[in-house]
Amino acid sequence: MSEKIALSIEDLTVSFDGFKAVDKLSLYVEKNELRVIIGTNGAGKTTVLDLICGKTRATSGTINLNGTELTRYPEHKIVQLGVGRKFQTPSIYENLTVLENLEISYPEGRGVFGSLTFKRTEQVTQRILEVAETIFLTEFLNTQSGLLSHGQKQWLEIGMLLIQDPELLMLDEPVAGMSVSEREKTADLLNKICQGRSVIVIEHDMEFVKRIAHKVTVLHQGKLLAEGNMESVQNNPKVIEVYLGH
């Protein structure tokens, strides 16, 4: 194993009443890598992210991020250890402004009393402005986020994770519902933000996957079906069979 590996998942299994949604999965993601996970509906992609961020507890197996075993920790601790996760449907605080959404996600004042005394310092404001620019929402800082377009909401949620500067960023279908030009911008965004961290993206749109993926992992019925660069995966007979047989 190379030294650059940030996330290593080994023999990960979760069973829901006997049904194994993820089955003996092993997966290694390097630093600075953008990994895309593809697979048919119900393949277990979202469940893998749920397991990493602690939303679902593994039946067996290990998840290790930069030397720390994550499966032991509660969800908020896993976040504090450097895992950021975007949900499949945009999950932002619709009643708050873009600015407030980003501010709440800022990794400071996370305790009860810390949040009571939290102040929007110059440093916090700078960081918010910086992230807002990265996610193309500078003009919308004081807009109530419920009024944003679907694509902008997706960006906002990505921004809410970026502001925490996570070691591992996991995005569940980030371009769903986006226009063509929004997809272009998102691809550039993802290529930019995988610097200095690891990114896992779940995506169905193959054109988009081609544009962003360093490496692709194909899941099928909870198991790893194939792994490699886009071309080798696309030409893999097992993968072709699964996708065409579907």
């Binding site: 961020c53 939303k55 509660p74 969800e75 908020h76 976040v79 504090q80 950021g84 996760r85 949900f87 999950s91 932002i92 605080y93 619709e94 009643n95 708050l96 407030e100 501010e103 709440i104 996600s105 990794p107 004042g109 996370r110 305790g111 009860v112 949040s115 009571l116 005394t117 939290f118 949620e157 809410m160 925490q164």
Partner: peptide, 26 residues
């Protein structure tokens, strides 16, 4: 305070708050 905005956020998207690093129960 930020706690007030967190309460609003919690009512809206509890999981988003939890997965932003907050111990929601507290």
């Amino acid at each position: 305070s930020k706690l007030g905005r967190l309460l609003l956020a919690l009512r809206d998207k509890e999981d988003r708050v939890r997965f932003s690093g907050y111990d929601v129960a507290n």
